[in-house]
Write a protein that binds this DNA or RNA. Sequence first.
DNA 1: GAAAAATTGTACTGTTCGGTTAAATTGATT
DNA 2: AATCAATTTAACCGAACAGTACAATTTTTC
Lengths: 228, 228
Amino acid sequence: MAEQQRNKWKQDPEAVRADILRVATDEFARAGLAGARMDEIAARTRTSKRMIYYYFGDKEGLYRAVLEQAYRGMRLGEQELALDSLPPEKALRALVIYSFDHHWENGDFIRLVMTENMHEGAYMEMSDEIRALNASAIDRVRQLYDRGRAGGVFRDGIDPLKLHWLISGLSFFYRSNSATFGLLFGQELFDEAGREAVRQEVVEAVMRYVLARSPGAERGAGEAPSSH
Amino acid sequence: MAEQQRNKWKQDPEAVRADILRVATDEFARAGLAGARMDEIAARTRTSKRMIYYYFGDKEGLYRAVLEQAYRGMRLGEQELALDSLPPEKALRALVIYSFDHHWENGDFIRLVMTENMHEGAYMEMSDEIRALNASAIDRVRQLYDRGRAGGVFRDGIDPLKLHWLISGLSFFYRSNSATFGLLFGQELFDEAGREAVRQEVVEAVMRYVLARSPGAERGAGEAPSSH
DNA sequence: GAAAAATTGTACTGTTCGGTTAAATTGATT
DNA sequence: AATCAATTTAACCGAACAGTACAATTTTTC
């Protein structure tokens, strides 16, 4: 504690870069591109402002790096999910629940995407990497849907892209607009209990959209015995 | 053209205020609170920068006025819709379609709400008027739902607030995230034809969420003869 | 171990930007 | 028509802010 290397410093470029990105992610997510302050980022970093410009060029370069890292982290997290081992209906439920929770837990990502949309996607457009990352997301939905349709449990005629849109949209909106919606219509949709209730309804909405037959009585406690 | 009143100006406070608000709405919607430039607003106004401060105090005061006007315009537009004269199912379809189109057409409103959410609703919180405006929106949904449930066409157990959330969420998200989503998954969801297709699916999703029985075959052209 | 390349710290700069000063013009009041 | 408050103009200001100059220190190369 008392004696860090005094007047001597070690070089560790990767750690410095990572440290800058960590702080910058927080600041850009908090304040957007225009609202973020380079001095503020520098102050909260272990290094100096000069380093930020050395590694990232300028403010926009830093923002782009932050955005890429955020998408990378988000999509990599999704890979954990093993859907193929579940029957289609259960897999879809799991996917929706995961999407909903994952978006909720990654507020920084949400706010960065909001910021990017305010800029009409201008910075995301420059990144080939981000587009590559997302191609797989839609594939997963397509596979799941095809599997369910083949088994007759999902109805025909659904566009997997729109299904993905539906799931992402509801998951994203719940978090992105929680401030204004909560203020206008009550915070009870956004506390712990409310969140679980909304999640359940999102699952319900998606399942009813996809299932060949509307889900049977889900009221009451246990599973309803179907035919065994 | 050649001879506006030279060196003579007329006083018209209301017109000046309205002119400032019009330009400011555009600028705040374009760039957000931090990104908007007072000089830019002033330049595009018929009046001067000093006038903005005279009427609205400071940048935040102007932003608050813009936000209030935007919500007012949005909610007032909704009053046109006469749902009571339609049977519940048709009324709900009309409501969803209206919501979807209305959000799409009001990009400035969407972007102002996005901006406000970036600020955690801090400015909306100061406005009693905005909250009052929105109370009626949820009432309309509640009445419609009650009517449909009474007739047995809507299922039991739906929270009107969550139904409103569902409709708003999908309508809002379609516009708010069109840039990033279109970039990642293709613009075809957002051109003229794509928009109509998505709208149809949003209606479909909401109806399946609400209806007591899943909607019959809607394929083919005209109305299916039901029982007459 | 000397030279070259990469990395870091300190101090500074030019500009942009929100906001203001001070005075002038206009319309209402008497 | 003199007076006064409301409204408008043009020029200006200080702080905040993105970005830089330049030297110092560390690591790599030969």
